[in-house]
Design a binder for these strands. Structure first.
Lengths: 222, 222
DNA sequence: ATCGTATTGGAACGTTCACTACACTAGATT
DNA sequence: AATCTAGTGTAGTGAACGTTCCAATACGAT
């Protein structure tokens, strides 16, 4: 009916989904690997465990991924993409002036319910593999940097009354905001009764405002 | 000379240090295991690696410790003891009114230079093994609780002008202070250039004061 | 000098590890 | 109908794992 296949060289059209389970199997493997890596870390997660949890044989795992490291990197990449997308959506729908509050609240909310696996994943891999696998560390850093830059924008928005001081201050405090948020989340994981995530979004804003004030004062009179 | 050994049953006097290298070997194994566990986690640390780094054969490791888990527990115990001792000393030598500042500064200072291995150890084992090894998790929690209680004392001291509100507020904020400190330290590990540990002791105090204020205000007018 | 015992050295144990080889099937293409 | 290939199933590979065994050692006490 339509244009006949040109027979010069084997230009196989890559779309068309060859076998039904292709992408679905890949996702199943990534799902299994993600939860296992978050639970047990890289060294603690065996291919056998991924095979069991995903229901797919080892040969399929090695069909989609070069080796265990490559699989872990793919897991991180997918998780980072989800995270970035969520942050972007929040930013695009929040009214100005409330950006920081919304962002923090959304992050805490999301993390408090669905994302501890992701948080665990990031921390575990950073701590365990960061020193040995620079490529993975770079990927983790890139994801962290994306989050940081969005936090910086949100803080600049929150500090907008400070004029041209707002931006550098926001850049400076964004790392602190992320670090503190992350610390609180880890605290919540280790000791859920003592860290009240609901109260935190408010209080982090208050705390950062106080630190900003402190820094500005020190800037004037060293 | 002294009392002759009573021959009823084999009551061997346990003191007296039998072989010269006994305790020293045990410490060497603990040292090697501690650094390796902090670097690579539990699953990532093999007995072979501990043997190499400590210079002692596997049989010695299994002479002093029942198995790998027991060794990890001993590592944690020793690290926690050091930590507790250091905090206690700081508390006992700090003048009242400056307790919190001193404690935070000392903790950050110590951690910034000597203790990242310890921090890594705590976090890695908590994240990696916590779910599977309740005894280890309990030990980690106990150490964390000791630190928290000392922080609570220090904060109560800092808030002393608030009278009888000081203590509950201090108890409440101590967890937050620890979580934030820990978050900042992890941030420093992942991104050393962006988190300035030296500035943090000041600013954490400022931030906590602001949060305390915020909570008191909300308490009055809900 | 001899003995007992706290350690060490080294070689094994069975199991699990990451990974591979290869026959095979299902669905798309011809 | 025949062919092709993305993906699956099974059975394996050598290496590394945690752990054990036991002979060899060296020191303290006798």
């Amino acid at each position: 009916m339509n244009a006949p296949s040109p027979d010069r060289s084997r230009t196989r059209r890559p779309g068309r989904a060859a076998r039904a389970h292709g992408k679905r199997s890949r996702e199943a493997i990534l799902d299994a690997a993600e939860s296992l890596l978050a639970e047990r870390g890289f060294a603690g997660t065996g291919i056998a465990a991924i095979r069991e949890r995903s229901g797919l044989p080892a040969s399929s795992i090695y069909w989609f991924f070069e080796n265990k490291e490559d699989l872990a990197a793919a897991v991180v990449e997918r998780a980072m993409d989800r995270w970035t997308k969520m942050l972007g959506e929040t930013r695009d729908t929040a009214p100005p002036g409330e950006l920081f509050d919304r962002l923090m609240r959304r992050a805490l909310d999301e993390m408090g319910h669905a994302l501890p696996p992701f948080l665990r994943l990031e921390m575990m891999l950073a701590l365990e593999r960061g020193a040995q696998d620079p490529a993975l560390l770079a990927r983790l850093r890139a994801g962290r940097e994306t989050g940081r830059r969005m936090t910086e924008d949100a803080l600049a928005d929150a500090f907008s009354k400070l004029g041209d001081r707002a931006r550098p201050l926001a850049a400076d405090l964004s790392s602190l905001a992320i670090a503190w948020t992350q610390g609180a989340l880890v605290g919540h994981l280790l000791d859920p009764e003592r860290i009240d995530l609901d109260a935190l979004a408010d209080e982090l804003g208050v705390a950062l405002a106080a630190v900003a004030d402190h820094r500005l004062k020190r800037e004037r009179s060293p």
